[in-house]
Simulated scan of single mutants.
Amino acid sequence: MRIKTSLVTAGALAALLLLAGCTDARDKESADVATLRSGGPAPATTPSAATRERPVVRPDEGGDVFDRYVEVFNKCLNGEGVAGPKQDRPDLKKYERNKEAARKCDHLYPETWMERERRTNPEFADLLRETARCLVDRGHKVTVGGDPIAIRYEDNAGANKAYEDEQDCQRKAFRESVENYRKGGS
């Protein structure tokens, strides 16, 4: 009986050692794989053009700043073999080469602070209505509507006449955002 117990104990011990050996081998294999994966620095990742924010022309900046941003955009397009626009943003969807250039350069085309507000500020429509009320108080005939929502004038002459007042009314209605842009935020 003693021999039988010794054989069972030896068999159990051998099984444990074998199991331990397998576990140890698996751990070493896992460690090797983990070491291989994490052995070097992670590859540098750059955000895609779709996630990068376009530069913003702030309320205290003028057309010269916009033009400088457009120059950078045009240089990028030229580097991709596409002629850039003189002023207006080009429609780059016509040719495949243009689509590739747009993917690489579009994040460089500037947007005005009001365009950024339209895209990001959930209170945009209300603040635009406040701007319109200010304009009406100053004697301009305006409405708010459309898609995208905007201030609408009866004609171009009315819009031209109201230009300075509109800038002032926007700054008043969007005062918190304007202050944020002045502090360097967006």
Rank of each mutant, 00 (worst) to 15 (best):
V8C: 06
A10P: 05
A10R: 12
G11H: 02
G11P: 00
G11I: 12
L13H: 01
L13I: 11
L13F: 10
A14S: 13
A15S: 12
L16T: 13
L16F: 14
L16A: 13
L17N: 00
L18M: 08
L18R: 05
A20P: 00
A20H: 06
A20G: 13
A20N: 02
G21L: 07
G21C: 10
G21I: 08
C22F: 13
T23W: 11
T23S: 12
T23C: 09
D24K: 13
D24E: 09
A25D: 10
A25W: 15
A25V: 12
R26H: 11
R26D: 03
D27H: 14
D27M: 12
K28R: 15
E29W: 15
E29N: 11
S30Q: 15
A31Q: 05
A31Y: 07
A34V: 04
A34P: 02
L36P: 01
R37M: 00
R37N: 03
G40N: 06
P41R: 06
P41Q: 04
P47S: 04
P47A: 05
P47V: 06
S48R: 00
A49Y: 01
A49I: 01
A50H: 12
T51E: 13
R52D: 00
R52P: 02
R52K: 13
E53Q: 15
R54T: 12
R54I: 09
R54S: 15
P55K: 07
P55Y: 07
P55L: 10
V57E: 00
V57M: 06
V57A: 09
R58T: 12
P59V: 11
E61D: 08
E61A: 08
E61G: 02
G63S: 12
G63M: 11
D64H: 09
D64F: 08
V65G: 07
V65Y: 06
V65D: 05
F66N: 09
D67E: 15
D67F: 14
R68F: 02
V70M: 04
E71I: 10
E71V: 15
E71Y: 05
F73H: 09
F73M: 02
N74C: 08
C76D: 10
N78T: 13
N78Q: 10
G79P: 01
G79M: 03
G79Y: 05
E80Y: 01
E80H: 05
E80F: 02
E80P: 01
V82F: 06
A83M: 02
A83L: 04
G84E: 02
